[in-house]
Simulated assay, not measured.
Amino acid sequence: MTSATPPSNNTSLTSSQAQQPLSESALRALAATAIEQIGKKQPLVQVITNSVVTNFTANALLAIGAAPAMVDIPQEAGPFATLASGLLINLGTPTPTQAQAALEAAQAAHHAQTPWVLDPVAVGILPVRTALAQQLLDFKPNVVRGNASEILAVSGQSAGGRGVDTTNTVEQAQQAAVALALRIQGIVAISGPEDFVTDGHRHIRLGNGSALLTKVTGGGCALGSVMAAYLGSSPSPSTYFEYTCAAILAYTIAAEQAAAQAQGPGSFALHFIDRLAQVSAHDIHIHAKISI
């Protein structure tokens, strides 16, 4: 694994930005606006992800109107991160080459102020990706998303779950998420039956979704790329928190709508991409389940 020089500056949210009060109605309105911005800006999203989910992730980005770019080799990943609208780094299958590319991209994104998302898949029980996740945290991801066990592990409070499956509840990981958000001066999102999002000061619960997302390869991983696209469409870092919530709402509302049509996991995957392409600002206003 190649090391990289830790950053000396920080482009994440400031404390004054993070402490701005937020109402349910304001979040709903901003999330609806965020969906419209994706279509207008068509963000270019660099994806460094695991080999199992590449196709599903690219299709999810195309469905929302973003442009996926799977640039994940050394000497290309860093320069491309300075050009991209947003970056996802997913640690699902971190080969030595991809690990080096991830470090290059994270460092470049941090210095270029390209918003980026870290998905620490299966950290804790597996040593290579666990060490890599800690190195990547030095470059201040704007968002860390994962299941409860992954968030507990990356924050140093547990040994992780059972591979990619969580053995902890969202509630058990909330304090770790708050501490991690303060550490990176960014946002932490825990995926579960009810998602939890925090910037260390504000705490949001989002109640949409479908259990069928856990039955499709890439159901969780693709969410990180959608978050990166939403961050890349945000007008400024001061709205990264709201745009992260918007990404989750659009994704999970589409999952609910797809589940209503599906006969099982296979048909759900097809319907989900369709619904993700069609989810609208109106859907946010009508269907979003938000608790502050």
Rank of each mutant, 00 (worst) to 15 (best):
Q75N: 15
P115W: 03
P94D: 03
V144K: 01
L88H: 05
T114R: 03
V154F: 00
I125L: 13
P79N: 07
L152D: 04
I89Y: 03
A108T: 11
A81V: 07
G146A: 01
A106G: 08
L137Q: 12
V154D: 05
A81F: 02
I73T: 15
N142R: 13
V128D: 13
L132I: 10
A77P: 12
L83V: 12
G92F: 03
P120S: 00
T82E: 14
A112I: 02
N90H: 12
D138F: 06
G124N: 06
P120L: 00
H110A: 14
L83E: 13
I125N: 13
I73D: 08
P94I: 05
R145L: 10
A153G: 09
L103I: 12
P120V: 01
P68E: 13
T95E: 08
Q135P: 14
A112C: 01
S155V: 09
D119C: 03
P120T: 01
V121Q: 00
R145V: 02
I73A: 13
G156N: 12
Q113T: 05
P79H: 06
G124A: 03
A131I: 15
D72V: 07
G92L: 06
L132C: 07
A102M: 15
V144W: 02
A105W: 05
V71E: 10
I73L: 12
L152K: 12
A102Q: 11
A77F: 04
L136S: 07
V143R: 02
V117G: 00
G92H: 04
F80G: 04
P68Y: 11
F80H: 04
P115V: 00
G124V: 06
L126D: 08
P96S: 09
A102D: 08
R145G: 00
Q107K: 15
V128K: 14
L118Q: 02
A108C: 09
N90S: 13
S149T: 03
P96C: 09
N142L: 10
P68G: 12
G124Q: 07
L132W: 01
H111C: 09
M70I: 14
A109L: 06
V143I: 11
T95I: 06
Q113G: 03
L118V: 02
L103M: 15
V154H: 05
R129Q: 10
S155A: 15
A108Q: 13
Q98L: 09
T130S: 15
D119E: 11
I73V: 15
L91G: 07
T82R: 14
I73N: 08
K140M: 09
A109G: 05
I89R: 06
S85Q: 08
L91T: 10
S85I: 03
T95S: 15
L103H: 09
P120C: 01
T130I: 12
R145P: 03
L132M: 08
V123K: 04
T95F: 01
Q107F: 02
R145F: 00
